[in-house]
Design a protein around this nucleic acid. Structure first.
Length: 415
DNA sequence: AATCCGGGGCC
DNA sequence: GGCCCAGGATT
C-alpha cells in the first residue's frame, strides 16, 4: 500500500474528516500535508521537553535493544535500576552472548517475563555467529532475532539506525486512536495493521527515532491512559478526540479473561545448620528455572485448613506427587524419618500473575528427629535441581517475587 | 486468533 | 479488585 498517497480516512474505514467536518471549533484539521505540520510540532516539543532517560544518553543499538526488551510490558520507573545494573554486568553483545544463564536470571530477578532475557541471549549469540558481532541494521533482519517482534524491531531500527519506520505498541495505539478517533479494538491483533499504517503515514522520515520516542513521551504525559491532559498538549489542534471532547472514549479495548485461582502449601523446611530446602522449577512454563521452596498444590477437596501434623501423600495433588516423593526420599535417606515433618502454618501469601492468582499457606517444616549427618551430603546426592540454601546467602539463585513474599512471611513468623 | 508469560503502580 | 504498562512466542 502506498501509504503516502493516502489520507488517514482511507484506511480508517470511514471518513473521519467528513464526519466531523474540515473545520472543527474553528481549527483546520488534517488537510494536505498536515502530517508534516504534526511532525514539526511534535519534534519541537520533544526537543524541549522530551524525557531524560539512561538509554537516551549515548545511543547504541545494544543499549536501545536492552532497554526496549526490559520495557516490554514494564514501566519506565521499574526498568531504570535494572537497566543500569544490566549494562554494567553485560556491557556489550559479546558479554551477553557468553554470560552464564544463572547470572542472567539473577540480573532479571523480580522483573518478570523471564523468557525475555533467555531470548535476548539467544539473539546475542546469533549476532555473534551470523553478523560478526555487529547488530544488524535491516528491519527484517532485526525482527528475525529471538524475542524481537514488530514493535521492538521498529524501535531499534528507527532509534539506532534512523530507519523510517514506526514503532507501534500499546502506547502508540492509544495516541493514534485518540488522534484520529479510531474505534477499532486495540486488543485484537488484526487491528494492529490500522495503527501500523497510521504510523507509516505519520512518521518523520528525517527523524524517525526521535518521532517514535516523542510519541512515547506524549503517551506518558498529555495522552496517559488515565487522567490525560489533552487540552494542554502541544498536539491539541491535531487531535480529533480532543477537539470533539471524546478523549476517554479511546482507545477501545476489550476485556481480558479473568485469572484462575490456585491453592498451594509452601513448605519451608529448615535444618539445624539454618539451611532451607529449595527446588528449581521446570525448564518451561510459568517461572521457568526459577527457585522456590517446595510448593504443593492442594487438592480441590482440601482447600480448607490442613490440620497441623505430619504430611501424608494422599493430601498432595497428583501433579505434585513427584515433589512429595523426592522430599520423602531425602528425609528418609538422611534423617530416617517418615512422614517428612510436622508443620506449623505461619501465614498466607497471595500473589497475582496475569492469568493466575496463587493463594499460598506458608508452613514451617519441623524435622522429626535431630539429624546427625553432615548436611553437605544432601547436595551431592540426587537430582541437581534440589539444594539446601543458607538464608544468609541468597545470591546464588534467582527467586521470583512470589518466593520473596514467602521468605518475608517465614522470617517474620517463624518459631 | 487465543493463550501463555511477571510484576508493580494506580485507583 | 480491576486496569494499565515501550510485547513476543507458542499453539
Amino acid at each position: 500500500m502506498q501509504i503516502q498517497d493516502h489520507k488517514p480516512e482511507d484506511w480508517l474505514g470511514r471518513s473521519a474528516i467528513e464526519d466531523l467536518g474540515p473545520d472543527i471549533h474553528g481549527v483546520q484539521v488534517w488537510g494536505p500535508k498536515t502530517n508534516e505540520k504534526f511532525q514539526t510540532t511534535l519534534l519541537d516539543w520533544y526537543d524541549q521537553h522530551g524525557r531524560t532517560l539512561p538509554w537516551r544518553e549515548s545511543i547504541s543499538a545494544y543499549a536501545v535493544w536492552v532497554s526496549e526488551i526490559m520495557l516490554q510490558q514494564t514501566q519506565v520507573d521499574t526498568v531504570i535500576p535494572y537497566y543500569q545494573n544490566f549494562m554494567q554486568k553485560f556491557p556489550d553483545i559479546q558479554s551477553l552472548a557468553q554470560a552464564g544463564e544463572a547470572d542472567l536470571l539473577k540480573a532479571w530477578e523480580g522483573l518478570g517475563y523471564y523468557s525475555r532475557v533467555r531470548n535476548m541471549q539467544v539473539a546475542a549469540q546469533t549476532i555473534m555467529d551470523d553478523y560478526d558481532g555487529e547488530f544488524p541494521s535491516d528491519l527484517k533482519e532485526i525482527q528475525s532475532l529471538k524475542g524481537i517482534g514488530p514493535y521492538t524491531a521498529g524501535a531499534i531500527a528507527s532509534i539506532a539506525f534512523n530507519v523510517a519506520t514506526p514503532a507501534i505498541d500499546g502506547n502508540a495505539m492509544r495516541v493514534f486512536a485518540r488522534l484520529f478517533t479510531v474505534s477499532a479494538d486495540i486488543a485484537q491483533a488484526k487491528n494492529r495493521k490500522i495503527f501500523q499504517a497510521l504510523g507509516e503515514y505519520l512518521v518523520d522520515p528525517k527523524r524517525p527515532g526521535d518521532f517514535n520516542q516523542a510519541i512515547m513521551d506524549l503517551g506518558s504525559s498529555y495522552q496517559r491512559a488515565k487522567d490525560p491532559n489533552p487540552e494542554a498538549s502541544p498536539l491539541r489542534d491535531f487531535n480529533l478526540s480532543t477537539l470533539t471532547g471524546t478523549t476517554l472514549d479511546y482507545p477501545v479495548k476489550s476485556k481480558k479473561a479473568k485469572a484462575k485461582h490456585y491453592y498451594y502449601d509452601a513448605l519451608v523446611l529448615e535444618d539445624k545448620a539454618g539451611r532451607v530446602l529449595i527446588c528449581q522449577r521446570p525448564e518451561t512454563g510459568l517461572l521457568a528455572k526459577m527457585w522456590t521452596v517446595p510448593l504443593l498444590e492442594r487438592k480441590e477437596a482440601a482447600k480448607e485448613d490442613m490440620p497441623l501434623g505430619p504430611l501424608f501423600a494422599d493430601q498432595v495433588a497428583e501433579d505434585d506427587q513427584a515433589i512429595y516423593d523426592n522430599l520423602l526420599a531425602e528425609s528418609q535417606a538422611h534423617y530416617h524419618v517418615s512422614p517428612i515433618f510436622y508443620k506449623r502454618q505461619l501465614a498466607e501469601v497471595k500473589h497475582v500473575f496475569s492469568h493466575q492468582v496463587w493463594h499460598i499457606r506458608v508452613y514451617q517444616g519441623q524435622l522429626k528427629e535431630d539429624p546427625d549427618q553432615v548436611i553437605d551430603r544432601l547436595t551431592k546426592q540426587g537430582a541437581s535441581n534440589w539444594s539446601w540454601l543458607k538464608l544468609s546467602d541468597m545470591t546464588q539463585h534467582a527467586f521470583p517475587t512470589v518466593q520473596m513474599k514467602i521468605w518475608q512471611a517465614y522470617e517474620k513468623n517463624r518459631v
